[in-house]
Structure formats: structure tokens, C-alpha cells
Design a protein around this nucleic acid. Structure first.
Lengths: 206, 206
DNA sequence: GTATATAAGTTAAATTTATCACAAAAAAAT
DNA sequence: ATTTTTTTGTGATAAATTTAACTTATATAC
């Protein structure tokens, strides 16, 4: 039946389900239920079942879900039954931390290219990668057919970098710069911004 | 009329409005409109007006919003017309990056305490702070009356650290560990997890 | 001075999202 | 072997959220 249109808010919850299933698996569990899974992450059992029902039938009445099977299925749905090469643009403290993060690999991603425009860091080795000149970004990204990128440059340069990434064929951008970026239709963008999250919380504090 | 109950989804958008208004201000603008603001961040003008209407009347027909005034008001609503001291627990690469991040200060936050359990880093100086022994976390956090904390320890220790933070009086936790954490009623929690965001995007890629 | 354009705040409508409740199926208990 | 319990997937219902439309006010153009 192909990929029907699924609400984005549903898609956004799938990675959390996947993460939690993997954790259950690490804890030695083999099966779980919409109820058991939901308790873990404070999501109702009905919602989990409804969400999954957009993609097929993965459970069994009376027993629930076979964890390894549901993981497989979710990985396929989310297209992480493969490893996406990523480009990282900007190697300040944050870029450094991301380059050295060992958590991507087992979840469908790996850093492949690192860029910066600062001559003092270009050519240096970070987490096993030679930092490349961001002037050659378009060329190198195209050559390596990289489709996913992370931006950790400062706010003033984030839009320009994003534009160049898009030109190079990048289709998904994770932006750490605290600024909204415009991308064309068909290019995905997500934001990571601690200040946004902190201010969201302080609303509820006195 | 006090603080009526405002949908959390509305509250979640306010920090983005604030961020964008500050940016407009840096660009030299003095006024904006729901339309102008919305265009920047791909949110409809009606939604911005509706969101703001939960908190009062901040604009003027015909002209729109005075940026500096709206910034002031949003800062008050979000309780960032003050500076919140923060504790940072865990000083790996990521903790390092956060400790050195210069962006918190102008948005209502500052790192005040840094903790780790690794004897080789305890006592060392990071971004001007002496890393403290996490065994003394409760005591020191209470003493400094810190209400906001960031967790950058590994997944296996995140819940335990969160529990101890809560015991110490922390009321808002920003968790960077890729695991869901349980906190009691009245304690705020938010997550930052690049893998979740990346997988959300790869759903839409082929 | 009058007409036109801009734009907030709000009420109503439309849409989206989440919950509920139940039939069907499997497993466990008696 | 039958009853009870667990649990899925789903259609119906309820709730939440967004959009649209409208009234009022201000500013600008003529």
C-alpha cells in the first residue's frame, strides 16, 4: 500500500519508541506490550497502538510485541536499517563533542566529514577525521554523497551554511545554532537548542 | 487574573518567539507584526496572536508589536527576567562543551556548579569552575539553592543522578542522556537527543 | 478630511489529535 | 474443556489545536 500520509506528530514519537525498545532489549526483555512500553515513557497504551497502526500490525493479542521484531520494523520505517553518513560543519567545543560522540553508530548514523573555515583548525585531526576547509564543502559533500548534516557554527553563519549544504545535496539538517533556518521543500530541518528547552521549563517555576 | 492554565504547546512556542524577537532587535528593528514574526519562523500570524492572547494584550492595531516591550513581557512570562544558576552533572566532551558555552548568560541562565564522579577530573578547572565530587552534590546544590540542572552523564546513571538532583531541590532538569527519566509531579524535565531528531528526519528520506 | 491599508485581539468553525470502548484473538488459570 | 485474563487493532467519540473570519483601532495615502 506504500507510504500513506502519517501525521508528523506520530512520526516524531517513533524514535522514542525505538530508543525505549532497545533499552528494554538491553535489559534482557524479549516481549513488551503497549501498556508496558507506555509506562516507561508516560504515553498512553492506546496512543502507542494507534501510532503503530499507521504502519501495520506488529503485535499479537494476549502477548504484545516481540521486541526484536518491533525494533526491526521501526528501524525500517525510520530508514535507519542503514547507516547514514553525516557531515559536521563547525568545530568549536560543541562540534568537538559531537565528533567524539560514540552513540551515533548503533542508531543509524556516523560522522564522515568535518568542516570548518578557521585556518588554524583546518587540517587538524578531530576524533580521527581531518578537518576540511569549508570552502570545499559543496565539492566534497557531493563526492561522498552525504545526505545528512549537523550545523554547529554560530548563528550569523548558520543560514549561509545551510544554503550551501542544500546546494550540495544534503536532505536533512540538524541545526545547533540558536536561529531559525529556511530550507526548500523536501529538505528536513530540526533544531537543538538548550535555551529554548530551559525557558520552556522556567515558565513553570516561580 | 493570575496565571490561567495555558496549553503547554503554547508555552513551548514562546521561547522561539523570544529568540526571534531578540534577533530582530539585533538587526536594528524596533517593531514587528504577527505576520512579520510568523514569516521568520513559519508559524501563522493567527497562531502567534492567539498564543500571545493567553497572556495579555501586547500589540497595537495598525502598527503591531514594539519589539523591546514584547521581549520584556515574554521574559517575564517565562521567568527569565532573572538569571537562573545551573548545575551541570557529568563532564565528558559534551559537559565540557556546555560548560564553555557562552550563550546562556544573555538568556536567563548561567552555569554555577559542575559535578563529576571521576577522581581524575574532580578538582580540575573547567571553564573557570572547579569540578566538584558528585558525592557531595546534594549538599552543595542545596547550599547554593540551585533549581535548574543539566545531565550529561551516560544513560545508565541518568535516572540516579536525576533522583539525587530532585532530592537536592532541583525543579527543572535538561537531560542529554538518551533515556527517559521519571521525575515527581512539579519537577520539569526536557530532553535533548540528536538521534531522536535525526531519526525523525530520516523517516522522510528514501 | 476622507478613504484605504495595516494589524491586533477574539469568536466561531474546521481540523487535527488523543482517548475510549469494544470485538477478536491468544494465553493463562481453573 | 471452559472460564478468565491479557492484549491488540480499530471505529467512534471527545478533546485539543489551528485556522479563518470579523470587529475594532491605528496609521498612511490621497
Amino acid at each position: 500500500m506504500g507510504k500513506r500520509i502519517v501525521p508528523d506528530i506520530v512520526v516524531a514519537r517513533l524514535p522514542l519508541y525505538l530508543q525505549t525498545l532497545k533499552q528494554l532489549q538491553r535489559e534482557g526483555e524479549y516481549t513488551t506490550s503497549s501498556n508496558g512500553l507506555g509506562k516507561r515513557i508516560d504515553i498512553s497504551a492506546a496512543q502507542i497502538r494507534k501510532d503503530l497502526s499507521h504502519f501495520g500490525e506488529f503485535g499479537k493479542q494476549g502477548t504484545g510485541y516481540a521486541i526484536s521484531y518491533l525494533i526491526e520494523q521501526l528501524e525500517e520505517i525510520l530508514n535507519v536499517n542503514q547507516v547514514w553518513d553525516m557531515a559536521l560543519v563547525g568545530v568549536g567545543f560543541l562540534g568537538h563533542a559531537i565528533a567524539n560522540f560514540r552513540g551515533f553508530n548503533s542508531h543509524g548514523f556516523q560522522v564522515k566529514l568535518i568542516f570548518d573555515n578557521n585556518p588554524t583548525v583546518i587540517g587538524s585531526n578531530i576524533a580521527g577525521f581531518i578537518v576540511q576547509d569549508s570552502n570545499k564543502m559543496e565539492e566534497i559533500i557531493q563526492e561522498h554523497n552525504v545526505k545528512v548534516a549537523m550545523i554547529t557554527v554560530d548563528s550569523d553563519h548558520a543560514q549561509e551554511v545551510a544554503d550551501r549544504l542544500v546546494k550540495s545535496g544534503v536532505k536533512a539538517i540538524l541545526n545547533y545554532a540558536p536561529v531559525t533556518i529556511k530550507v526548500p521543500e523536501g529538505v528536513q530541518i530540526q533544531y537543538i537548542d538548550p535555551i529554548i528547552e530551559l525557558q520552556h521549563m522556567t515558565y513553570y517555576l516561580d
